[in-house]
């Protein structure tokens, strides 16, 4: 029999260190402290960016003003909006990420399905080559591509990004093919076989039976593809320069574009380029992605956990 004192001690110990079913207080505090610290690492740049972007030129010069600006100064956003040529670059960015992504996901699903469902000689080789396309750095293929595009007058045209995507060679295409391959391997074959016995054609089986079953994978991969195309600057600068300007492209020459609009010799000192305006530009650049992410996030993360994007 336990004494009252013993029982009390036990209760304290369970509270502090937990039992089989509950985490103890010590662990909980430790867990939240770490989570908050790491979360801060990711939120700090965003907070910093946002706070700096609403500082007036006076606040920027005032060493007393660190995290709380004396006023909300929206003029930075008005300037960044003009410098980025926002309506135009935003539309360009949306088109240049959504269209190749749709093409890329559609073709990757076809290829992934073909690899998962059919036996044919050379399948191992194709899989190895798909992996190889993931490893080959873009600068090993980009120059001849650029010269060929130039020859056909495609340089600066949206087609220069659409064409590779339509042929399964879009940005990071290997990941998409391999995830679809994995997804179709794990889906049951029975329905498809039954449809085949009923005389359905291969393409019809793919479109009406396999595709609907893989919808979660489609959506997750599409979102990933949009994000990666949106953030891509190496290829877009080479292929689109002179034709289409996406948001990140415009951001990378922000200083130059600013001085074209507001020549430093002409405008007064408060209208010169400062970090507040640059941060406003950066924030406008990631804002569409943030909005998309916060709308989709719950759904997005959960379906990744379900589709098993890890690919084993």
């Amino acid at each position: 029999m336990l004494s009252a004192r013993q029982r009390q001690l036990d209760r304290v110990r369970t509270f502090l260190f937990g039992s089989r079913t509950h985490y103890g207080a010590v662990f909980t505090v430790f867990l939240y402290a770490l989570l908050i610290a790491i979360g801060f690492v990711y939120l700090y740049p965003l907070l910093f960016m946002f706070v700096t972007s609403i500082k007036s030129p006076e606040d920027l010069l005032n060493p007393m003003v660190q995290w709380v600006p004396t006023q909300i100064y929206t003029e930075n956003y008005a300037k960044a909006y003009r410098v980025l040529n926002y309506p135009q670059t935003l539309t360009a960015s949306v088109v240049m990420s959504v269209v190749p992504s749709a093409l890329q996901v559609a073709v990757a699903s076809l290829v992934g399905y073909g690899l998962a469902r059919y036996r044919f000689p050379g399948k191992g080789l194709v899989l190895a080559l798909v992996l190889a396309t993931f490893i080959i750095p873009p600068q090993n293929t980009v120059i001849p591509q650029m010269l060929t595009y130039k020859q056909y007058g495609l340089l600066g045209s949206p087609l220069s990004l659409f064409l590779p995507a339509a042929f399964g060679q879009g940005f990071k295409s290997a990941i998409f093919i391999l995830v679809f391959y994995q997804t179709f391997l794990t889906l049951p074959k029975v329905l498809e076989e039954a449809a085949r016995l009923d005389g359905a054609s291969d393409l019809r089986i793919f479109l009406t039976i396999a595709l609907p079953a893989a919808v979660p994978a489609f959506i997750v991969l599409f979102v990933f593809s949009v994000v990666w195309y949106w953030n891509e600057t190496f290829l877009t600068v080479i292929f689109l320069e002179g034709g289409v300007t996406t948001l990140p492209m415009q951001l990378s020459k922000f200083a130059q574009a600013y001085e074209n609009l507001y020549p430093p010799g002409v405008v007064n000192i408060f209208d010169r380029l400062n970090e507040a305006i640059k941060m406003a530009g950066t924030f406008l650049n990631i804002l569409p992605l943030l909005v998309m992410y916060f709308i989709l996030q719950r759904w997005f993360v959960e379906s990744i956990e379900r589709t098993g994007i890890a690919g084993e």
Binding site: I38, G39, Y42, L43, P45, L46, F48, M49, T52, F224, V227, W230, N231, E232, T233, F234, P248, L251, S252, E275, K278, M279, G281, T282, N285, I286, L289, L290, M292, Y293, F294, Q297, R298, V301
Partner: peptide
């Protein structure tokens, strides 16, 4: 979870360059 997956969304060249410069 939302916070920890932020990098997936915003890690791009020019954004990182601007942040690093600051």
């Amino acid at each position: 979870r939302t916070v920890f997956f932020l990098p997936v969304v915003i890690t791009s060249g020019p954004v990182i360059v601007e942040l690093a410069a600051q």
